[in-house]
Design a protein around this nucleic acid. Sequence first.
DNA 1: ACGCTTTTGTGAACGGATGCACAAAGTCAC
DNA 2: GTGACTTTGTGCATCCGTTCACAAAAGCGT
Lengths: 234, 234
Amino acid sequence: MSADPSARRGIPDATVARLPEYLRALTGFAERGITSVSSEELAAAAGVRSAKLRKDLSHLGSYGVRGVGYEVDHLAYQISRELGLTQDWPVAIIGMGNLGHALAAYSGFATRGFRVVALLDQDSHLLGQEIAGITVQPMDALTSLAEQGLAIGVIATPAASAQDVCDQLVAVGVRSILNFAPCVLVVPEDVDVRKVDLSTELQILAFHEQRRALAAEGALEHVTLEPINSAVGR
Amino acid sequence: MSADPSARRGIPDATVARLPEYLRALTGFAERGITSVSSEELAAAAGVRSAKLRKDLSHLGSYGVRGVGYEVDHLAYQISRELGLTQDWPVAIIGMGNLGHALAAYSGFATRGFRVVALLDQDSHLLGQEIAGITVQPMDALTSLAEQGLAIGVIATPAASAQDVCDQLVAVGVRSILNFAPCVLVVPEDVDVRKVDLSTELQILAFHEQRRALAAEGALEHVTLEPINSAVGR
DNA sequence: ACGCTTTTGTGAACGGATGCACAAAGTCAC
DNA sequence: GTGACTTTGTGCATCCGTTCACAAAAGCGT
């Protein structure tokens, strides 16, 4: 039941990690003019089991109608609100190498809820250059950016500079960091770091690929190799 | 104990996901000329607790020496071997937009174990262009690439083309796919898909950021807000 | 108004991952 | 060779997340 929506405290991390996918699926339905979906349909579109979807949604309240399903627009709004996407989050990207360049132009950042307000680099010969309509500024600009309210920092520098840049972000009050550099960042307890690492993902794929190759050779014939579908666990 | 190394079957997914980080940390130690580390030191460098590290390593055998620690080179080799990095995995990147372009040039792919053998795009005006020393080919090239042994496909196309590209990869026998497109891919059971989604990561950060903002307002004063450090769970 | 059908929301069982605490096993000094 | 010290490897308890299965709740047709 959980009739009182203010009773929903502490949504599990695993659930939060899936909410964006549900939201995306709902957006897809809305674009096709579908106004109502069952948990079965939505779960299929999001790549999960319906029981999991229902339990996830139950953590944010009771927005479904038994015997009918969920109203697409309403559920999308509730998830957006829960994720904090009903307001704009100012984002700064630090490090304008190949990756930073691509991130600046990446449409995923233009998704409702996020606004790239600055591109920073310490390399002086990039300064003043315009990328995706935004002028590249020096690292000094961080302080004034923070005063105007900077919520999220994206680190796209080489690993060697990442901790230094991270420290600067934390110093000006940024507590949400998305790290693309292949290294561990040390931060105070109240700072949230998420890491995206291409090399790590490849290595995990290689592990499973090798496992399959060995199994095919018959070297592991006594091993069950069905459960390969490991999804996006993390 | 687990004296018989061939007894280590079925390494937990959570452990596999951390092995690349341990390997990176070990490489760092090796570069600084350190030949031996304790589980405490290695765990700190990898951002985990030592008990977790030891349990993880115990899944691949008993490579430590009690009272001493682990020999850096030897352990790095064992992890590399377990991950399948002692052989080369041919990688193809499909979709040469901003992101694909950055990926082609990204040094993370040049890490030992992976070799970008092809860049593909269906946009005819990109064909023949050279990126990071590799000529962009049309999608037709997939078949001959597969014959030469293609292990991993990286999808960096827009979401609308991703499923189509994925189907083509699966059709030529690729069973490991890294998907950067913001969509769910439908694949046969024996195909392994890992997804990297910038927008999802941002939304997860936004959730925690909002949670902190609400807590600061006092709206959630009865809530424990200590456990914000959610690490790289996924 | 009533019973039939559909689908949600959730209690309970299960399984996997994490953290603790310690015995086992090795090194090193003397 | 012996004893003190260090650090690994792991049994155990706990926690978190997933799955199952079903009762509760809503619509709908008659």
